[in-house]
């Protein structure tokens, strides 16, 4: 009916091949088990049907058999689990050098912000063979970011950041779906991921440039929202210096210390009272309602950019699961 139809899903990311290997192994294993059981059922049903003369004396002592088919599946299951565990851990751990793109989901669209300030809607352009990390949040309900060709999916939650990473290995455009039911137009909340050669991607970035980078946008916000009034170099208010804050360990007034990641900065802006820096008075006002998710991401990008050395691998690690 349709020539676009192909039985095999494209396998277009660095991990998709490995996931497919596990998938096809499971398909084979399960088919083998199922077919085996079906054959036995047919054989018994035919051989021992009523009216047929066969030896029907029951053997005794079923324990060894029972134990066999308890333990053999158990061992197989543990094997499958081990394999899947290994892959899952890979899927969930972005490489340290992954390039970050921000995604904000809202009913019913995907808003993408590249670090250099380019914004896209329902489109995501990524370079080939470069690990890309998406830091995602939602403005309203839970959505889920799903690119079948990459075998990746991650729910996108309001009020926290979730992450997903992939490394595209095939040029082309691939469908993107929202897979968490999010209301009326859930089924229309899709888009496309376009994988480009790195040089084309660079050109595309420049071609669509023009507006300031995300960090620059954040810097502008930092001034216009009045942050610099307190945090600026020559502010009179006693507030912490935010240069290079991202990835630092911050000591709090209650004696504990936290790791300054995306979530921490987000909370500092929206819920400043939640974690108060040691040695400072809790005078920072909450910006809840004044900054939206896009602005937050811009502010975070700006604060990140004030750091001279790149964020260490551990920093990426700990933002993985959003809130702590």
């Amino acid at each position: 009916m349709n020539e676009q139809f192909h039985l095999l899903l494209p396998s277009a990311s660095s991990l998709s091949g490995r996931i497919d290997a596990l998938w096809w192994t499971m398909v084979l294993l399960c088919s083998a088990v199922a077919i085996g059981v079906f054959i036995m059922m047919w054989v018994f049903c035919i051989r021992y049907r009523r009216g047929r003369q066969v030896d029907r004396t029951l053997s005794r002592g079923t324990l060894p058999i029972e134990l066999t088919w308890t333990l053999v599946p158990l061992v197989i299951f543990i094997g499958v689990f081990g394999w899947s565990l290994f892959l899952y851990a890979r899927e969930k751990t972005p490489p340290a050098d992954a390039q970050t793109i921000y995604v904000v989901a809202k009913q019913w669209m995907w808003k993408v912000q590249h670090p250099n300030g380019i914004r896209e809607i329902n489109q995501l352009h990524v370079p080939l063979d470069v690990p890309v990390r998406l830091t995602m949040t939602s403005q309203d309900v839970i959505h889920s970011f799903y690119v079948p060709a990459f075998r990746v999916k991650q729910d996108v939650l309001p009020g926290r950041y979730t992450q997903l990473w992939f490394e595209a290995t095939q040029l082309g455009t691939f469908p993107l779906f929202c897979t968490q039911y999010c209301g009326l137009d859930h089924s229309r909340m899709g888009g496309q991921v376009t994988v480009m050669r790195p040089e084309d991607y660079a050109r595309w970035l420049r071609g669509n440039g023009g507006n300031a980078t995300l960090a620059a946008h954040g810097a502008a916000l930092f001034r216009s929202l009045g942050c610099s009034g307190c945090h600026g170099a020559n502010a009179s208010v006693h507030a912490p210096d935010l240069d290079g804050i991202y990835g630092r360990t911050v000591h709090l007034s209650d004696g504990s210390s936290v790791f300054a990641d995306d979530v921490y900065i987000r909370d500092s802006i929206l819920l400043p009272g939640k974690q108060v820096v040691a040695g400072f008075a809790p005078i920072m006002p909450s910006f809840q309602g004044q900054v939206n998710e896009d602005d937050l991401l811009a502010l975070i990008a700006y604060l990140k950019s004030t750091r001279t050395q790149p964020v260490s691998a551990t920093a990426t690690e700990s933002t993985k699961n959003g809130r702590h």
Binding site: I19, L22, W23, M26, V27, C30, V33, A34, V37, F38, M41, F77, V80, F81, W83, S84, L85, L87, Y88, E91, S144, Y146, P148, R151, V152, K153, T179, Q180, Y181
Partner: peptide
Amino acid sequence: FVGLFMLGGLTGLMLAAPALDVPLHDT
């Protein structure tokens, strides 16, 4: 029942492997 439950259960196993559930979840 035995046949269909088995097929359903075996696919449940695939879903129980998180690496496979990531692409298959909510499909």
